[in-house]
Design a protein around this nucleic acid. Structure first.
Lengths: 268, 268
DNA sequence: CGCGTTGTGAAGAACCGGTGAACCGGCCGT
DNA sequence: ACGGCCGGTTCACCGGTTCTTCACAACGCG
């Protein structure tokens, strides 16, 4: 083993692709043993997947909004080649991995030339099949979709990731980068209370030192700017001893006779 | 043969990727037999290729402007994994096909997870190896190809991809190639804020080293030339801590009484 | 009422971007 | 081969912005 120059390989967990939804995958196959072990693996990883017993019209595949398709050309019979060709033609964005029993070089070359992204020979280890699907998806994603993130509207506030900025009534809040990232994180978890440690970890990227007040300070700055841009709403709420929660709420209207009114709880 | 559902396969000539220049490929290997048969095949196809006897610093690979790299991890020894990791880190746009002797599933999975696009086991048919490289390149290009964009007119500026040049009022801006590519990228994302890393990645083609100021410097040069050609417009806006945004705006006319005018924020 | 937690303001540190210039390597004409 | 030109890269400096930290006040909870 030690003389093997490749020594040292071990299967690593994929780093959580934070924020990214799990890949959507369909499998066209009927080998129950293979399917069972594969689907179990996919479930464990949290991938959305679907098993199809036979060729499915391209139209239907479109509606599934797949990222990748694993197909056993063998079970499709001679029509499999046509099917593959139509797939690559009509769904050029779809990652296609052929996973089939014995095949000749010529067949593999044909399949790949036709537009398949990879060709795996059965029997194969599900882990490798998945890794290859990941490779296909990774390559596909890298250049294609940096946009994708849609602006979110909550309360009077518009959080636009493409601008690294939030707006209220069309007016910019003039957030700095950190402030924006903090807001984006909180707003994305709308309604849930986030602990300081988690916030720090995800915005700053490393563990929070004990006694660090940065999160508090940034929440203040954020509140200030949000208040200026959208005075009639409250967005960030403190949970004593825990952390912060984002939830747009109309501000309580101040009474004309402040002295009579019981002092408002500054936060909820 | 006829009972093989995959029957009918034959090696097809690759459909001429019209207009596209031939792929640039490098091979890191030292198996003379394998190399000989492979390079002959590549010559026949007209691919530009280059054989490297050993690992080459990423820096040098950058200057080769490769589309894909075929590498035998075996000849690199234990450092091969690190090398692979560095490659995928700094050259995320490069297609990487590992072509190595015997390997375990765990090794293949590790390589693929690390960013390799495909993993072929030697001995292998050169035709299949080439087909797999093609598949990788195709996947890469599919999304990338913005080719044949019509000239765009924005503000007072005309960006002509067919000329690799921008014009204002019919006058050329005399942009260099890099300057033009930077402008084209920014202008294509009109209104969106692009981070430096993304800009660098897409214009320079590889990952930006920490502390690299090239993007800033080119933005300055671009601004200078645009300003000279079209003095009454501002096109490139800085977003502090983030990056740049392209948006043509009439330049704020300097008032005769500067004191009255609120100081413009340098960006937005 | 007292302790721990959170809000607040300010100051210094750290960082960022604009800028000019030096530097480097390839290309060209002599 | 030589030197100059050109495009690209790197460096150092500077002014401005942003982040961190700290001290203290205000507040919640037992």
């Amino acid at each position: 083993m030690t003389e093997n120059p490749l020594a040292g390989a071990e299967i690593e967990r994929r780093p959580a692709t934070s924020g990214e939804p799990f890949p959507r995958l369909a499998v066209i196959d009927n080998d129950s043993g293979h399917l069972q072990v594969l689907t179990r693996r996919l479930d464990r990883l949290g991938w959305e997947h679907r098993v199809l017993g036979a060729a499915v019209p391209e139209r239907d595949l479109v509606t599934m909004r797949l990222g990748a398709l694993v197909v056993d050309l063998g079970i499709l019979g001679p029509g499999g080649w046509d099917y593959l060709e139509r797939l690559t033609g009509t769904l050029p964005g779809l990652g296609i991995v052929v996973c089939t029993g014995r095949s000749t070089v010529a067949q593999r070359v044909r399949g790949l030339r036709m537009g398949a992204d990879d060709w795996v020979t059965k029997p194969c280890h599900p882990e490798e099949l998945i890794a290859r699907v990941e490779a296909v998806l990774r390559r596909r994603r890298r250049t294609e979709a940096p946009a994708a993130r849609s602006p979110m509207l909550t309360g009077e506030l518009e959080v636009r990731s493409d601008q690294f900025q939030a707006f209220a009534a069309g007016r910019t809040c003039e957030l700095t980068r950190r402030e924006f990232e903090l807001l984006a994180l909180l707003a994305d978890a709308e309604g849930r209370v986030l602990e300081r440690e988690e916030v720090y970890q995800r915005v700053w990227g490393y563990a929070m030192a004990r006694g660090d007040r940065s999160v508090d300070v940034f929440v203040r700055k954020l509140r200030q700017k949000l208040e200026k841009a959208s005075p009639t709403w409250r967005y960030i709420h403190t949970h004593f001893g825990v952390g912060y929660r984002f939830a747009p709420e109309p501000a309580a209207v101040e009474e004309a006779v402040p002295e009579v009114v019981a002092p408002e709880r500054a936060y909820v």
